[in-house]
Simulated assay, not measured.
Amino acid sequence: MQITKLSRKNIQALTPYQSARRLGGRGDVWLNANEYPTSPDFDLLTCQFNRYPEAQPTAVINGYAQYAGVDSQNVLVSRGGDESIELIIRAFCEADDSVLYCPPTYGMYGVSAETCGVAVKTVPLTADFQLDLPEIARHLDGVKVVFVCSPNNPTGGLIKRPDLLELLQMTAGRAIVVVDEAYIEFCPTATMVNELGNFPHLAIIRTLSKAFALAGLRCGFTLASPELIGILQKVIAPYPLPVPVSDIAAQALAPQGIATMQERVAQLNALRVDLQKNLAKLPLVEQIFASEANYLLVKFKDGQKVFQALWDQGIILRNQHTALSLANCVRITVGTADENRRVVQAISELS
């Protein structure tokens, strides 16, 4: 007997999310996962590991609540933002419900829905990578959760705030709207957190993986109304955060940790501006899309050639060629000044 035949039919048909690490590569310049290019330095302050951790570590919850400007009852901590995506689908979607998202965008919305056996509806972004609100309204029947990423991955731009507000208005009483703010630290004034009190069906996903430079920690957050948070607490694992993770997360969320993160963001935003300026001079570059995050989406005359040539040199970027409307596009994470220089030099030598 083949074990595969015992698995659920939707899992048999499922193509797993192609994460940067799953795709692999051999290199010394890793600019394919939107990670911070260098690691922060933390020492564990807690070394007692024989007891189970707190279900929702108080220091982490309170630290993030203070940072985000919300009450602690508006915060849930999870194993990265990805767990939050799946928790919301599991908590709110019946077997005959649907999840809606707008490609090109983060692939885990669809993968998580398919893993849970929930149908997916897609409404492509407009040509300028904004929400197509009339089409979303037309497809809302049967939709229980709508995912929107802002700044959007992989395009880098913000979704217009008035459009997000209109989406929230049209879904009131019908669906949960999830705004994924994984990259919001790079443009903090664009957050939707101040709308939580106005829209009880709004959930915001955050992470320590990007600006906090802690992708290896796997620590994310959901910000929402107390009622919505209470529903998610029913389905989350009993001990989602290991003790070392909550220890380091609490340190990162202390005042000094926040200040360090903000300095890091300022430096990276400046590096992004320089990288964009230098890429724009290259003849192989057709277009660089406006970005409010720690990466640039670049359209080349022959994106496949550029991606493969740099891959062969150990410069690992993220190929977006097969994503909707992104033919010949490559996403480049902003690295160190030296890494950015190597990218530009390698592309210039292909001209």
Rank of each mutant, 00 (worst) to 15 (best):
residue 27 G to K: 07
residue 180 D to K: 06
residue 3 I to H: 13
residue 110 G to A: 01
residue 273 V to L: 13
residue 171 T to F: 01
residue 222 T to Q: 09
residue 246 S to W: 09
residue 161 R to D: 06
residue 164 L to E: 02
residue 318 R to V: 02
residue 29 V to D: 08
residue 305 K to P: 01
residue 99 V to H: 04
residue 106 Y to I: 05
residue 139 H to F: 08
residue 325 S to T: 14
residue 85 I to Y: 08
residue 40 P to K: 09
residue 258 I to P: 02
residue 191 T to I: 05
residue 4 T to W: 11
residue 12 Q to Y: 01
residue 262 Q to E: 15
residue 89 I to D: 00
residue 230 G to D: 03
residue 232 L to A: 12
residue 150 S to R: 00
residue 181 E to N: 12
residue 99 V to T: 03
residue 129 F to T: 02
residue 107 G to N: 07
residue 317 L to R: 01
residue 74 N to C: 14
residue 55 A to Y: 00
residue 189 T to N: 13
residue 158 L to K: 05
residue 128 D to P: 00
residue 213 A to Y: 09
residue 145 V to L: 10
residue 326 L to P: 07
residue 70 V to I: 12
residue 63 G to K: 11
residue 197 G to A: 11
residue 242 P to N: 13
residue 4 T to Y: 10
residue 43 D to G: 00
residue 287 Q to D: 10
residue 14 L to R: 10
residue 128 D to M: 06
residue 151 P to D: 04
residue 333 T to K: 00
residue 299 K to S: 10
residue 147 F to M: 06
residue 30 W to S: 06
residue 242 P to R: 11
residue 103 P to C: 09
residue 88 I to E: 10
residue 196 L to E: 04
residue 209 S to M: 14
residue 269 N to L: 06
residue 43 D to K: 07
residue 273 V to K: 14
residue 7 S to N: 08
residue 76 L to C: 08
residue 113 A to P: 06
residue 308 Q to A: 13
residue 310 L to F: 07
residue 124 P to R: 05
residue 47 C to I: 12
residue 341 R to L: 07
residue 304 Q to L: 12
residue 250 A to I: 07
residue 17 Y to Q: 04
residue 244 P to K: 04
residue 209 S to K: 09
residue 70 V to Y: 03
residue 21 R to W: 09
residue 46 T to S: 13
residue 81 G to A: 10
